[in-house]
């Protein structure tokens, strides 16, 4: 039975599903490395997926949709830093509020603009990359600029976080803000930086989902923002480990879809809950010890 599921298209599917997870998980990583817990990844994905959809429908230009979606992501991250860094409000409570706000806004605006509670009209996706899209076998993956970016991001974030001055300072702010401040590092500036990068990457994840699906629908993000946070925890806040965690979750999701289609009798709900179950087990300490940045979640 397994041979019928693990096929070429299944393999491609895993890498497609990997993309929003990895973008969301690295988003969360940049924020938490700077000491700000952002559980609103889900909301960021939803609102920018919707923005991409709405702008692309209005202008028929997916590039404008892409830029618009990213700008919306940045705007919301600025708000997020205002609440969490400037006003020092409990980051988790703010995250819950943001999730509700962004999901609510997308639902409301969809009804207002498109008079449907389920989905928007169709729109063009972000054009495939020339040349790369015609590579045999893997053209579907390599032609997609955001998938390529997500794969490169493994190395980019590893380098930025661990090999650059910015990354070192970002991490020091998340580990010990008092010490960082004494060394002359502008703590709040770096925290805001972390939050903005987080908003950008999470938004890109949402935009990819919207572009890939060809029409925005209510519930299309489907908890991926939370799974991304789970992947970050399991990956212990390290880009390389998170890569494997995301691959694993992408594998489960693809398996779930394949099981549903094949009618194998294995209940898809159990595959569906695996990521969450594994995360809890990891947190309890069954699968190695996890250690978040020392000052994670503490306002400074």
């Amino acid at each position: 039975m397994l041979e019928s599921i693990i096929t070429y298209s299944f393999f491609m599917q895993v890498f497609r599903m990997f993309t929003p997870y990895y973008l969301g998980a690295s988003a969360a990583t940049f924020s938490e490395r700077s000491g700000v817990v952002n559980i609103a990844i889900e909301g960021f994905m939803i609102i920018s997926a919707f923005s991409y959809a709405a702008i692309t429908i209005a202008t028929q230009n997916p590039y404008l949709g892409l830029i618009g979606g990213l700008i919306i992501g940045i705007l919301f991250s600025l708000f997020f830093s205002l609440f969490t860094i400037k006003l020092k409000i409990n980051q988790i409570v703010i995250g819950v509020g943001f999730n509700l706000l962004m999901a609510g806004l997308a639902k409301f605006l969809m009804l207002l603009f498109f008079h449907s509670s389920s989905n928007t009209p169709g729109y063009p996706h972000i054009p495939r990359l020339p040349f790369l899209k015609s590579i045999p076998m893997i053209g579907d993956l390599t032609g997609d600029s955001i998938i390529i970016f997500a794969l490169l991001l493994v190395f980019i974030s590893q380098t930025v976080l661990f090999k650059t001055r910015f990354g070192l300072r970002l991490r020091s702010v998340g580990e010990n803000p008092e010490a960082a401040e004494t060394l002359g590092i502008k703590v709040r500036l770096y925290k805001s930086g972390g939050v903005i990068i987080c908003g950008l990457l999470a938004s890109l994840g949402g935009i990819w989902l919207a572009s890939n699906q060809g029409s925005f629908s209510d519930g299309m993000v489907a908890g991926r923002g939370y799974i991304a946070i789970a992947a970050m925890i399991i990956g212990k806040w390290k880009p390389m480990n998170i890569f494997f965690a995301c691959l694993m979750f992408a594998f489960f999701e693809s398996l779930e879809i394949a099981l549903q289609i094949s009618g194998s009798g294995i209940p898809s709900q159990f595959v569906q809950m695996l990521p969450y179950l594994i995360t809890i087990l990891v947190l309890i300490g069954f699968v190695g010890k996890t250690k978040p940045p020392a000052a994670d979640g503490i306002p400074y």
Partner: peptide, 15 residues
Amino acid sequence: VPKEIMLVFQALVIL
């Protein structure tokens, strides 16, 4: 106006 405006209202109240 779409009733979903209440979702926005609730979130705004929290924030």
